[in-house]
Structure formats: structure tokens, C-alpha cells
Write a protein that binds this DNA or RNA. Structure first.
Lengths: 240, 240
DNA sequence: CCGAAACTTTGATCTGGATCAACTCGCGGT
DNA sequence: ACCGCGAGTTGATCCAGATCAAAGTTTCGG
């Protein structure tokens, strides 16, 4: 599904992005009401199914978005088909690469998601005119950079088992803890996607997940649901 | 060598950072003259030897810098000693993590370098007050993020040979081409550092470099100097 | 100029994770 | 209820890159 095209093909009135501010979306939260009204007029709330593409790698996208609900994966694909997920984004993150028209990576919904879509030229202009917005996006970029570098350590120097534990830790971090130590969550990624995030194969991911289950670090229900009885235990697996 | 301490121990007058602007340093290039004079008063030009640490991982650094000459490596170390270089920075890049006092990575001079050092509190204030400066740093952060994600693909999905070719390509990109296709440069990294950048061992780096030499993709003089007769050839090794 | 330490290369062997190959499970459609 | 299919697991084998070991090469202090 091409979100950019969908705006054109939609015949109804564009839906104002009124709830962005309430949800503290990275973009809307930084705007004053006049700008917000203008952005609302130009923007469109969309529900995207898991697996559908929001931005295609190598394409010129004229839209940015805010994630309102769900998980978006950022992915790079090589000509021969090898691929690497280079980031996961959660609500209320901003999705897009300001100031560069052609996207060097694809953004796809990992789960069903709701996003707020708006024109890139409008936002690029707003960034330059609104230091508060620029700061908000700068802050997100710095956080993404921290995360990317942490993940480079994982990709380059951790073992397969540590990689899988790192992924579980990353996702657990974005789910609220049930108790002080216990956390449970649904994996937003399939085994194949986990493999592409960790630089492993499906089989290795499956084996290491089984190993973590058998050593009681996690419980797995229905493939997708993970229960971590003791987050400290999981964290111990990651470093030394 | 601790740059932060060096300012305190220096007894002479701080050297104004007048040449930053001329060199289009990321920070100084975005300031108006009054701010530049203030920054010059508070800043210090320093020569750092290859291998010396500019910022230590886990420490609270009260300084940022601009690279004026040389190469700086950003490195993450695990408690058990495994380490990963997560970025290389060249003049006139800015070095530091705005808005977070404790550094989650170390910055070390990879080659002898000249840097312009200035207090973090002053610069954090200037960023908030100067949209042009914020924009300049935001642009650099976005570029670093692009580079980090490209490198994640390299770490996760490329073979050892492709990794070594990717490194040569990255460094060649920062040296001016001698002719349309030929490029030559000095490696700013030892074999051990290359290994830590690529998530490999020293031995594998050495073997793959030898292989590239024997297949005439590169020539190597004195371990450190690389000649790439045909950059297109090198690029072909990276993708498919 | 000499010698030691650090860095690099090369060779032999080992192993973690990839690859190839069944098999199982759960789910949606008829 | 049955079938068919995609997703996940498990087992057997293979291999790219790690590890262990031993030479070169370069640099630099004395």
C-alpha cells in the first residue's frame, strides 16, 4: 500500500490531525495552534495494515508521518535480496528523513498501525521556521543515533544468544512493566524480521529463543507473546 | 590525555578559535560574530596525538569539540573488553552528544588531530538560542544517522570481504580522488581498529586485504597507504 | 647501528552460526 | 471436519570466519 498515493486517491475530505497534539506526536507537540490548524488541513490520519509499506527505499516520497499507534520498521534491502532492519519506531515517533527527497530506506508497518501523514514540503518549511519543532526533531534524531550505535555494537560484537536477548530487552523497554521485575509483551516482529534485525537466520533465532525458554529466562505463549519473569536476568545475558 | 583537564592545567591564555569559521567548522560556521567572539574566548585549540582519548565512555564530559584536522573514532566497549567502533569523524565535524551530560561512547583521535574544544554548557545554551546553529548540528546528526544505518547493513549482512571493501570505500570517499577513477589515501586505522569497526578479527582483516591486493582491486604500500586504481571495481564488490 | 616491542601476515585447526531438510503447529477456507 | 499453506521448530551437515600458533616487518629508544 502506498500511503502517498492513497491521499490522492481518497475522495473524501482529509481528516484533520487533531489528536496528534494530545498524543504528544513529535511534530504536532512542537507547533502553535495556527500552524497546527494548517498542518491538520494538509494531513491525513491513516490506518495501515501490518506489512504494508509507508515509504519505499529509493523512491521519492512527498510525505512524512507521525506514528500514533503500532510499530514501524525501517529496512534496507540489497540488490541481491539480503536485508537488514536498521530501526524500530514506536508511537509517537516521527518517520521520515527531513531535507532529502529520496529515501535510502523503506518504512513498513510491523504491526497494524495508525499514522498521521502530511506533506514533506510543508513540514520542511515549518522546520526552518519553527525552532521548537526543529529542536523536537533534533532530539529524536539524537536518540535514534544513540540507538543505532548501540545496535551496531550488538550486530558487530554480540553472540547470537546475546543478540536475541538484546532484541527482547529492546522491545520490553517499550512495553510497560507488569510488576517491578516482570514484563510481558507481544513481539511486533516475525522470526524472519527478528533475523533481519539481528543479522542472523530464522533458524538461529528460533534455536536461541528455545534456549532462553528452556533456561527459564523467558516464557513463550503462542509464538508471539513473551513473558520475562525477571528483567535483571535478561539484562545479565546482554553485557558480559 | 584528558582534554577537559588540559584546559584547567594550561597556564597560558586560551587561544581564540578564530580559524574555525574559515574552515567551516560545523559549530563556528553557524554563529554570528558576537557569539563567535564569546565562543573564541571560552575555547581552546588543541593538538591531540593519535590514540589519545578526547571523551571517555561513561564519563561526564563538560566539553565538546570541532575537528579541525585528522580523524576521530567513536567507540563502544563492553565490560568484557569486546569493542566496536560506531563511527568515524572527519574535519570539520562536531564531536559530542548535546543535551546528555554522560557520554555513552568514547571519542579517540585515530590519527594526530587538531580540535577546537569548548564548554558544553555554553554551547548547549547557544544551540537553544541560535536556530541556525541548531540546524547545522541537526543536519550533521541526520548525516551521521544515515551513515550509522548504512553501517548496520554492513555489519549485519555483508561478508568479511564486502566489509573490508566497504571500509576502503568509506575512507576513499573522504579523500579527494587523484584522477577520475583512481584514489589513494593513508588508512587512519590500524588492522585492530579496522577489525573493531567491521566486527571481525585482525587476522580476517589482514587476509581479506591480502586477497583484495592479489586480485588487483587495491595496492598496499607500507601497510597503511592504499591505492585504488578503479573505484568502480571497489564499488562493485560492495553491493551484490 | 642494534635490539625489543608492536604490528602485520600467514598457516593450521576449530566452531558458531549458516544451510539444507524434515516435520509440527495453528489457522483460514471450503 | 478436512485440507492446504505459511510460520515456526528441530535435526544433520557444512563452511566462513574465529582461534591458536608462528613468522616476518617496522619503528624507535638507546
Amino acid at each position: 500500500m502506498d500511503v502517498a498515493r492513497s491521499k490522492v486517491s481518497d475522495t473524501g475530505t482529509p481528516v484533520a490531525c487533531a489528536s496528534c497534539q494530545a498524543r504528544h506526536g513529535v511534530v504536532c507537540g512542537a507547533l502553535w495552534s495556527g500552524q497546527l490548524r494548517e498542518l491538520g488541513r494538509q494531513s491525513l490520519r491513516r490506518t495501515v495494515d501490518a506489512g504494508s509499506e509507508i515509504i519505499a527505499q529509493g523512491s521519492e516520497s512527498s510525505f512524512y508521518s507521525n506514528i500514533m499507534r503500532g510499530v514501524v520498521k525501517l529496512c534496507k534491502v540489497m540488490p541481491d535480496g539480503r536485508q537488514q532492519i536498521v530501526g524500530l519506531q514506536f508511537a509517537p515517533d516521527f518517520v521520515g528523513r527531513p531535507f532529502v527527497p529520496e529515501s535510502m530506506l523503506s518504512a513498513q508497518a510491523a504491526t497494524d498501525a495508525e499514522i498521521c501523514v502530511f506533506p514533506r514540503d510543508l513540514l520542511d518549511r515549518m522546520i526552518s521556521e519553527t525552532p521548537k519543532l526543529q529542536r523536537s526533531l533534533y532530539d529524536q534524531a539524537l536518540k535514534e543515533l544513540d540507538a543505532a550505535r548501540e545496535w551496531m555494537l550488538t550486530l558487530g560484537r554480540r553472540t547470537a544468544e546475546e543478540k536475541v536477548a538484546s532484541l527482547l530487552h529492546l522491545i520490553a523497554t517499550h512495553a510497560e512493566p507488569q510488576t517491578a521485575t516482570t514484563t510481558s509483551f507481544d513481539l511486533p516482529l516475525s522470526r524472519a524480521e527478528i533475523a533481519d534485525f539481528l543479522g542472523l537466520t530464522i533458524e538461529t533465532v528460533s534455536r536461541k529463543l528455545t534456549k532462553l525458554r528452556k533456561s527459564d529466562v523467558i516464557r513463550i505463549e503462542n509464538f508471539r507473546h513473551i513473558i520475562v519473569p525477571d528483567m535483571d536476568e535478561l539484562e545479565r545475558m546482554i553485557s558480559a
